[in-house]
């Protein structure tokens, strides 16, 4: 894939993130009764070892939440989301009212909320992507694990081969009322971008 093709594919992916999360933000604003600021998404193609370097902060942060969601259809792929434990608590505390915060005392509640949130976020992005490109995509139910990074990332092959390239997407948003910021990181295999470009070419008549 040439540089221009890659640039426009990444651009469409970033716009999909924006549009998909545009809907999610409305829901989050209602849940939190606060304005939500969505920051500009970053979409890059990076070698796996760079992505792994980036995730090293999660290693040093202790336990992390790891959410895996597969999607299929005309493009098949896998979205991996990582939150550090601190970030996930920031996020949940930002979204919940003061009275409800006492509920987040045990991991089960936290896990359930993160799964719901992830499902909404990934589905929103996939929905926008499938609509922009006019293709059919389905999401499976997300799987969530909580533990140390090295233990939990072993269940995906996506980050195994350090020589290959992956799509690396970062989204962050702030719950304004509580100044609580959360960051989601998506990893996708390189061929997602190549398939994406095929569809963009058809769509734009390139």
């Amino acid at each position: 894939m040439d540089a221009q093709a890659q640039a426009i594919s990444l651009d469409v992916l970033a716009e999909s993130l924006n549009l998909g999360l545009g809907h999610v933000i409305e829901e989050l604003a209602e849940i939190s009764n606060s304005k939500i600021e969505l920051h500009v998404p970053e979409v890059n193609m990076v070698p796996k070892n760079e992505a792994l370097t980036f995730t090293s902060m999660l290693r040093s942060a202790g336990k992390a939440i790891f959410v895996q969601q597969r999607f299929s259809g005309e493009i098949t792929g896998e979205a991996l989301l990582f939150f550090s434990e601190e970030e996930s608590l920031n996020l949940l505390n930002g979204l919940l009212s003061e009275n409800e915060q006492s509920l987040i005392e045990f991991a089960a509640t936290e896990e359930e909320m993160l799964l719901d949130l992830t499902n909404v976020a990934v589905s929103g992005v996939i929905y926008a992507l499938s609509n922009l490109l006019g293709i059919r995509l389905n999401t499976e139910l997300p799987r969530c694990e909580y533990g140390y990074f090295d233990d939990i990332c072993g269940s995906t092959s996506l980050l195994d081969d350090a020589d290959d390239m992956v799509l690396f997407l970062t989204i962050s948003f702030t719950v304004v009322k509580k100044n609580s910021r959360a960051q989601l990181m998506f990893f996708q295999p390189r061929d997602t971008l190549e398939k994406l470009y095929d569809h963009i070419q058809k769509r734009l008549g390139l």
């Binding site: 924006n18 549009l19 998909g20 545009g22 809907h23 604003a29 304005k35």
Partner: peptide
């Protein structure tokens, strides 16, 4: 012109 549908 935005994809953001929030009431705020």
């Amino acid at each position: 012109v935005t994809g953001n549908r929030s009431g705020h």
